[in-house]
């Protein structure tokens, strides 16, 4: 095993890991505000990529304009999803919530298939395809975009949660929804906010990864599940722990694909997911806390 090759795996693992982290944080934000695991999370990732494509091809917008449009539309659909499916639920038991978010997820996926067909599409990279040498390995400019944008979003996220009123209110909801309601925080609004933020983050993840991996109506399933895996490793934290979780997962996957077999690559995430849920349901870094499970 050569060092250069190893470095190559780690580098490409880091960028997919960053994507998982973004999606994972989306899961965590909704979970912390509502106690819901949103099975439709991955679909917003898919929407980000597919909508960018729509604005590029059908509306002939330049990339810099297509991206914000795509984010706006995916975010709006996230909002709509909360309003139409989650809020009106009369018996919000966990099983009903699981079923309704799964229903939403396959509905969105089905509609996308109706709209865009089953083909795989490519989005042009943001700035060229000239590989850049890093040590003995190479990365694409898109990798740098991914890492940069992820960092930016995580920083913005941190700022929102710790330095704005609505971010602090959201954290209050995460600690104790009832108490937050009692001190005058509009919990339902916070739930809506959480869906807005996480669908926006999901769509960004879908957009920045699309030039590397291509996109299709059904990419949301796997990306969503792996994002969830990242969040579980991070103990459903909406901050650093989930980022680390995503990066660990990305690197392990990339190493696994390179060293063991690319066919089993997808299984790695799920084996980790099960191991964490069985052995450390509070996440890799969290303290034991029984109410999470």
């Amino acid at each position: 095993m050569q060092f250069d090759q190893l470095l190559q795996y780690v580098l490409s693992g880091l960028s997919t890991g960053a994507i998982y982290a973004l999606i994972g944080i989306g899961f965590s934000i909704i979970y912390n505000a509502t106690g819901i695991i949103n099975f439709a999370q991955g679909e917003f990732v898919m929407l980000g990529g597919m909508l960018t494509l729509l604005f590029l091809d059908s509306c002939k917008l330049p990339l810099w304009a297509a991206i914000p449009c795509a984010i706006a539309v995916s975010t709006a659909s996230g909002m709509l999803f909360e309003r139409l499916a989650i809020r009106p639920l009369r018996q919000p038991t966990p099983i009903n919530l699981v079923i309704i978010t799964i229903g939403g997820s396959i509905l969105i996926r089905g509609l996308s298939m109706l709209l865009w067909g089953k083909d795989t599409h490519a989005i042009p990279p943001f700035s060229g395809e000239e590989p850049i040498a890093v040590g003995g390995a190479t990365i694409l400019p898109q990798h740098i975009w991914i890492l940069g944008i992820t960092l930016l979003i995580i920083a913005a996220n941190k700022f929102y949660f710790y330095h704005t009123i609505s971010g602090k209110a959201m954290r209050a909801c995460a600690y104790n929804r009832r108490a937050a309601g009692l001190v005058g925080i509009d919990v339902r609004r916070m739930v809506l906010f959480s869906f807005i933020i996480s669908s926006a983050m999901g769509s960004v993840a879908g957009i920045i990864v699309a030039p590397l991996t291509m996109t299709a109506y059904d990419v949301g399933v796997m990306l969503g599940l792996k994002g969830f895996c990242a969040a579980i490793i991070g103990g459903m934290s909406s901050g650093g722990a989930t980022v680390v979780g995503g990066l660990i997962l990305g690197i392990l996957e990339s190493l696994g694909a390179g060293l063991i077999s690319s066919g089993y690559k997808d299984a790695i995430a799920f084996i980790i997911l099960l191991l964490i849920l069985f052995i450390r349901p509070q996440g890799l870094f969290g303290k034991a806390q029984s109410e999470r499970v």
Binding site: V98, L225, I232, V293
Partner: peptide, 8 residues
């Protein structure tokens, strides 16, 4: 339980 069981 619940969501976690679904995911697992």
């Amino acid at each position: 339980k619940g969501h976690y069981l679904a995911m697992a």
